[in-house]
Amino acid sequence: MKTKHFLEGAEVRAMVAAAEAEALKHQWAMTIAVADDGGHLLHLHRMDGAAPVSAHIAPGKARTAALGRRESKGYEDMINGGRTAFLSAPLDSMLEGGVPIMKDGQCIGAIGISGAKPAEDTQVAKAGIAALGL
């Protein structure tokens, strides 16, 4: 039987704090969502000034990254590259800004960010994951 790693509350809060600090450093108003390995929302934080729609998009990005075990940008790139059949995939948000959280080769969750330019969303997501020291 294998041991399964999972995100605990303290780790989720540390990721959200680190992601928020990165966003504030650049004066980006964003929504930060953290999901478990099944794409279920563990935490949602909509920063002051973040667009209301970002509170819907960020969890979708996190869910997509968790279920797909890859950055959500990969799906966006496939679709933009002509593989439009992926539009029918049962994923919520195939936009850049969702990043899986990997430990020992296994996905333990994901973080999704919405509110700035796509690369900036990913930058903030990766800053959040960096707080875990993985």
Rank of each mutant, 00 (worst) to 15 (best):
M15T: 01
A29L: 07
S114R: 08
D48F: 06
G97E: 03
I57A: 00
A62W: 00
L87R: 02
A21H: 10
S54M: 03
V12G: 13
K73H: 08
E120F: 08
A33P: 05
P90A: 13
A119K: 14
H43Y: 10
K2R: 15
G115T: 04
P118W: 06
K25P: 08
M78L: 15
Y75T: 00
Q123C: 10
A66V: 07
R63I: 00
R83V: 07
V16A: 15
W28C: 02
S93A: 14
V16N: 08
M78W: 09
G115F: 02
L42K: 11
L67A: 05
S93R: 06
R69C: 11
A131S: 15
D92C: 04
A19F: 01
L132F: 08
T84I: 15
L132M: 03
A14C: 10
G128Q: 09
A65R: 00
F86W: 14
R13P: 00
L42I: 09
R70F: 02
G74R: 01
A55H: 00
A23Q: 03
I57V: 13
A130L: 09
A62D: 07
H45R: 10
M30A: 10
G82C: 13
E71H: 06
M15S: 03
M15F: 04
R13Q: 14
G49F: 07
M102T: 11
I129F: 07
G105T: 14
Q27H: 13
G109H: 00
P100G: 11
E71F: 02
P90F: 08
S72G: 05
R13T: 09
P100D: 11
E8Y: 05
V12S: 14
L132P: 00
I111K: 04
